[in-house]
Simulated assay, not measured.
Amino acid sequence: MTTSRRRLPRPVFLGPSAALVLMAVAGCSSGDASAPVTVPTPSSEAAAYCRALHKELPSTVAGQERSDPGPGSDLTAGWGDGEIVLRCGVPRPAKMDDAQSKAVDASGVNWMLEQQEDGRPRFTTTFRKVYVEVTLPVAYAHDATPLAAFAPAVRKTVPNSL
């Protein structure tokens, strides 16, 4: 019978500064408040409206503090741990061509509703020069109340297209 011995790798000693760097990186990666969000690529005119909107967005929505997702952009914003996500300058949703699509008015801003596969409602502004999309938690599948928080900023910065 033959026995073989395997050598175990030697433990690696990290100096104090290297250990701190690793801890900082670990703390910033998986523990961040929200997952990355796809940043839209609108025209320069639409992006200008979005930059203006970004400056006017509320600090809280539905009791959630603002916590913008990565990568940082004037075209995206978030509240809570990624529960509420806004994207500005998104393409016109195909669902807007459907005469049966549902819409809601929230404080003077009209939003079209799309139910996503995961149950989360996604609302997109209608009759505006730029499409603004807001995704809410499943708890708001039948309640568009948080949209009222966006209305003053949208009305002020994104003109009607009519």
Rank of each mutant, 00 (worst) to 15 (best):
P58H: 12
V37L: 06
K102Q: 15
S4E: 15
V39N: 02
F13I: 03
F123Y: 15
P121W: 07
D32S: 04
Q64S: 14
A24D: 06
A33P: 09
V37M: 04
C88I: 00
S4C: 10
S17N: 11
S73N: 04
K55N: 12
S17L: 15
R7D: 09
D97N: 07
P93L: 01
A148K: 06
A47M: 08
R155N: 15
S161E: 14
L14W: 13
A141G: 14
A46R: 05
M23T: 10
P42W: 06
Y140S: 09
G27P: 05
K55E: 08
P16F: 14
L147N: 07
R92P: 09
L14Q: 08
G15K: 00
A153M: 07
E45H: 04
V138Q: 15
S59P: 08
G31I: 00
G82H: 09
P71Y: 05
R92W: 11
A62M: 07
S59R: 04
P159Y: 14
P16A: 13
P91S: 10
F123P: 02
A99K: 07
R92Q: 11
D105I: 07
L14P: 08
L147I: 09
K156R: 15
R10M: 01
H54C: 01
S73W: 02
S107H: 09
T125Q: 04
F150C: 03
T125I: 03
G27W: 12
T38K: 08
R5E: 06
A99N: 11
E45K: 00
S107R: 02
M1T: 06
V158S: 02
T41R: 02
M23F: 14
E45Q: 09
K102M: 10
E83V: 01
L20R: 00
L20A: 14
M96I: 04
V158P: 04
A52F: 06
S161D: 15
S44Q: 12
D32M: 06
A77H: 03
G63P: 15
G89M: 01
P69C: 04
P159C: 11
A99T: 08
A47K: 10
T126G: 08
P16D: 10
P42S: 10
W111T: 01
G70I: 03
P159W: 13
A99I: 07
F127Y: 11
G15T: 05
R66K: 14
T135H: 05
T135S: 10
V61E: 01
G78N: 04
P93I: 03
E117I: 06
R5L: 09
C50L: 05
W111D: 03
T60C: 05
Q64T: 06
P69K: 00
R120W: 08
T3P: 06
K102H: 13
A99M: 11
L162G: 14
G80H: 02
A26D: 12
S43N: 10
S30W: 15
E83K: 01
Q100C: 08
A144N: 10
A18F: 09
N110A: 12
V138S: 14
A33Y: 03
V104F: 14
E117C: 05
D74T: 04
M96L: 14
R10Q: 13
V12E: 13
G80T: 03
G70S: 12
Q115R: 08
E56A: 12
S43I: 03
A19C: 00
